[in-house]
Structures are given as C-alpha cells and as structure tokens.
C-alpha cells in the first residue's frame, strides 16, 4: 500500500546525474499521501573495485555499540577490511574491502545484525517518516549517482518499523533492490520454495520476496528482462514494482492492472512513478507526454 518512484539518467544525457537523491525526494514528496508511515531510497553511486558498501540498522546508545561490535567481528571473521565507517541516524555504514563469498558473509551478518543493504554501488536509506524527514537525517539530497528507486509506505499487514520500509534489498545478492506497490498473495508458497533452496529472508514482507526471486534468476544467468517476464506468471496478486541493479532499471505490472504506474521518458532520462503528480514534480508547470504501461507488461532500461 504505497507509492513508488524510479529514475535513471541515461549515458547520453546532459550530466544532470548529480541530482538523483534530490529527484527522488521530490518525486516521493509528490505522492507522500500514498504512504505517510515511512520513506526509503535505493541509490546507486560510484564503485571502487573490490569494495562493498554496507548499511545496517543498529538503533542507538549501548544497543548500537553492541550491534556494531558484532558486525565488526563478522567482518573480521570473513577477512573484510573496514576502509571507512560511520553512524548516521540509526544506521551504521561501512565501506569494506572484500573478496570472499558474499552470500555467506551476508547471511552471517544478518544473523548478527539488521542488514539494510550490501552492494558495490547500491546503498539503501530508509526510515519512518516522510521524504523530507528521512532526508534531514540521512542527507539523501547529497547523493549523486546514475539511478535510483524510492518508496513511500502505508503499513497495512506488517509493522511500522524502519526495517519493514522499502526499498528491499535482495538479501544475499549485492546491488539488487526493489520497490513494490501491491500485495503478493502466494507469498508463503513462493517463499517456502526459495527457502528450501537455502535462501534466507530478513522480514515477513512480501516485497522482499520479489527482490530475492529476481536475484535468484539473475544469479542463474537469466537476463533481468526475462526474470521480469516470468515474475508476472510466477507471482500471484496485485503489483506494480520497480527493480534496479548496478546498470539496469525495470518495471513489471500485474495482469489485472490494479496498481497505478506512469512513466515519462526523454533522451536524457526515464522516470517512473505511481502517479503523474510525482513526474510533474521534476518538471513543474509542464504538460508531459507520459504513458501508462499496459497490464501484464514489463520493461528494462540499461545504462
């Protein structure tokens, strides 16, 4: 029950890709009425070879200290060297040099702390409150980068907690994030299938399933576009979702067209949102030639 947004600046564009964070803040501010409980961003920034960006919810005070100590212990066990780290809001953020098994590291970290995201490019920022509240704590507007996703949430079936906010990281798979509006009704069946194959889930939120489902396909060598296509058959329920990887952004929409989605594409960029009002936030005062994707469709854009 939410509003979603995604933007990618194309390589051919005019170099406005310094404003991804601000663009997503504006878009989400435009549809905050769809989800007043929490707001989140998936942002793709510069990469350094052999480095990972990690983000965790650690809370505050002694609780945070204990969590950070546990995280550092796991990193050390996996021979991951911390290059830089900091506490921002209730997050612990670290950049580490790492060359081992990422899925193993992720699962171990998850058992010790609440992982928000792991990626060479991806960082997820999410917390309770509106787009401007989250920006005030985490300085999202400073994020540059090529593309990103955003989400405002109205909690219905799960709690109003920062970790239940979107975007969802595909637990165990670097750099994959999704934002989702809708409800996956075969969640438990699909989750059990993935769990039987050894995948772990961080939450009971149906949106996490979409992330893990897609990441699993990508790991098997399936193209993102193909994975989106099969997701429309495999996932039951109502959904409009956006997915992003290091170099791609894509959408899928259920066959009943229950959840809204509008997109606007120029030579410079592609922007997708639940409502046109979010797109107009990027282009105030203009009449945009937007398009509503048809039911049961999917598409990707590549950088």
């Amino acid at each position: 029950m939410c509003g979603i947004a995604g933007i990618m600046y194309k390589e051919t564009g005019d170099g406005r890709n310094t404003s991804t964070g601000q663009a997503l803040i504006d878009m989400l501010d435009g549809c905050q009425h769809r989800g007043p409980d929490s707001t989140g961003f998936a942002l793709y920034g510069d990469m350094q070879p052999g480095h990972l960006k990690l983000r965790f919810f650690v809370g505050s005070g002694s609780e945070a200290e204990k969590a950070v100590a546990r995280i550092k212990q796991i990193l050390s066990d996996h021979s991951a060297t911390i290059e830089e780290d900091e506490i921002i809001g209730n997050n612990y953020r670290a950049v580490v040099e790492f060359s081992g098994n990422l899925q193993k590291l992720s699962y171990d970290l998850e058992h010790a702390a609440k992982v928000i995201s792991i990626g060479s490019s991806l960082e997820i920022v999410k917390d309770i409150g509106g787009a401007h509240d989250v920006d005030a704590t985490y300085h999202v507007h400073n994020f540059s980068g090529t593309h990103g996703l955003g989400h405002v949430r109205l909690a219905t079936e799960s709690d109003v907690k920062p970790e239940a906010a979107h975007p969802f990281w595909a637990t165990g798979f670097a750099d994959i994030a999704i934002v989702h509006n809708g409800q996956i009704t075969n969640y438990w069946k699909m989750r059990r299938r993935l769990q039987q194959r050894g995948f772990e889930f961080n939450t009971d939120n149906d949106s996490e399933l979409i992330a893990v489902y897609l990441a699993d396909k990508l790991q098997q060598g399936v193209k993102l576009e193909e994975a989106l296509k099969t997701s429309i058959d495999d996932l039951d329920g109502t959904f409009s979702f956006l997915v992003s990887t290091k170099e791609e952004i894509g959408y899928a929409k259920d066959r009943l067209a229950v959840k809204p989605m509008v997109m606007y594409e120029t030579d410079d960029m592609i922007a997708i949102a639940s409502e046109e009002v979010s797109l107009n936030k990027l282009f105030p005062g203009q009449a945009l030639n937007t398009m509503e994707p048809a039911p049961g469709t999917f598409r990707t854009w590549h950088r």
Binding site: G3, R34, L154, N181, T238, V258, K259
Partner: peptide, 12 residues
C-alpha cells in the same frame, strides 16, 4: 478503491 493508498485519495 483497490488498496489503502487509493482509499486515501477517495476519502479526500
């Protein structure tokens, strides 16, 4: 009204 998000716009 297909979800809580549409409902809020309807109430409005």
């Amino acid at each position: 009204i297909l979800g809580a998000d549409d409902l809020v716009i309807k109430v409005q």
